[in-house]
Simulated scan of single mutants.
Amino acid sequence: MTGDVLERIVEAALETELRSSRRPAAGSVADTVLLDLADEPTQAVCKRGGRNVWTGDVIEPLVLELVGSETDLPVPAVLASGSLEGRSLERDSAGGLDRWALYEFLPGENPGLRYRGLEPTVRRRLVREAGELLGRLHATPSLAFDHVGGLARDGATLRLCEPNGWHAIDLQPAIERLPVPLAGDPDCRPVLTHGDYQPSNLLTAATGEITGVLDWGNAHVTHAEYALARAEARFVDLHAAHFDRGERDHLRNAFRTGYTRHARVDPGIDRRLPIYKLLWIAQSGANYGRIVRDARGRRQLWRQCRRLLE
């Protein structure tokens, strides 16, 4: 994002002056910049693009406004959002509009790159609280739906699209056909979920307390149990090469203990979660396949890889 575009956005939306800007050490596929401003607020975050992988729409500002109004989760407030058109701007290939949003700057550090090296007690606190926040999101009655699907813009509101994509597969019929020991009573409540819930999309204090949940651009509606399985994989299973079995058991127990403070888990979940996690692996491969087909997506994935190498 060029400096003149940032200056135009800040001046028009916040009526203040942009003093400096920098990219975060880690970030999403969206074009994200940290801003230092002349007046209050003295800091903000600007994002441009960040299309939802399922619907192609930029939905994060609308999702954050919804989550911010319906829950007490620590999510950044939306300061302003809009779109810019012009020959000098890189255009969104899906719609010809270059969408942007300004968000509240939240305190804290991104634990993604240092997650494996955290003091075990700090990491377990982080994971327990992460589970609790996800449980609070899934247990919010106003964020429950009658079927799964993607989210798209409908003017200034969100609409639920018909199931289209791996995340929207209705798992209940498939699970009902499994052998009885695996079937149990799966939790197939359709709920709003984050879509990419992992340590690198959090901000934390030094003690492990979560101060922010970021990057809601791939939010969608799916079954609560499937969302729980995917999140547990990101916080526990993907780190099997670095944590011994005892530590993984501690983390898994911490995550579920936090989750079940607010949301339920049904009998047989231990047998079903491995199935959900295999489905998630296939889903992730499909997601990256979509991203790398887009030139902008390839550039931003390469930017993330370079940051990781650094």
Results as ranks from 00 to 15, higher is better:
284 S>D: 14
281 I>V: 11
90 E>I: 08
164 N>V: 04
191 V>H: 01
139 A>P: 04
65 E>T: 13
175 I>P: 02
170 D>L: 05
62 L>C: 07
154 D>W: 05
219 A>S: 13
167 H>W: 12
6 L>C: 14
40 E>L: 13
265 V>K: 05
212 G>P: 08
213 V>T: 03
13 A>C: 13
80 A>C: 06
163 P>S: 01
185 D>K: 12
15 E>D: 15
31 D>C: 00
54 W>G: 14
121 T>M: 10
284 S>G: 11
235 F>K: 06
38 A>H: 09
144 A>G: 13
30 A>L: 01
224 A>F: 12
201 N>V: 02
227 A>R: 10
109 E>A: 08
83 S>A: 11
122 V>H: 06
249 D>C: 13
13 A>W: 10
17 E>W: 12
93 S>F: 10
81 S>P: 03
31 D>Y: 01
11 E>N: 10
192 L>K: 00
46 C>S: 04
301 L>R: 00
240 A>D: 14
129 E>K: 08
286 A>E: 12
221 V>L: 10
80 A>H: 06
92 D>P: 00
99 R>S: 03
250 H>C: 15
50 G>V: 09
258 G>A: 09
262 H>I: 14
125 R>C: 09
99 R>P: 02
289 G>N: 08
53 V>Q: 07
65 E>G: 11
209 E>G: 06
284 S>A: 14
231 A>W: 10
182 L>N: 03
256 R>E: 15
251 L>S: 06
134 L>H: 03
68 G>T: 09
52 N>D: 09
298 R>P: 03
184 G>W: 02
56 G>E: 01
271 R>C: 09
103 Y>K: 00
65 E>S: 14
75 V>K: 05
214 L>P: 04
163 P>D: 00
65 E>N: 11
115 Y>D: 02
147 H>D: 13
209 E>W: 10
178 L>D: 02
221 V>F: 09
24 P>H: 03
59 I>C: 03
283 Q>K: 15
287 N>I: 15
242 H>E: 15
207 T>V: 09
221 V>C: 09
258 G>T: 09
298 R>A: 06
105 F>K: 07
86 G>R: 00
192 L>R: 00
58 V>R: 05
73 L>C: 04
83 S>K: 08
221 V>G: 11
171 L>W: 13
309 L>R: 12
103 Y>W: 02
308 L>C: 05
286 A>W: 12
49 G>P: 04
225 E>K: 10
148 V>K: 05
57 D>F: 07
257 T>S: 14
80 A>F: 04
301 L>C: 03
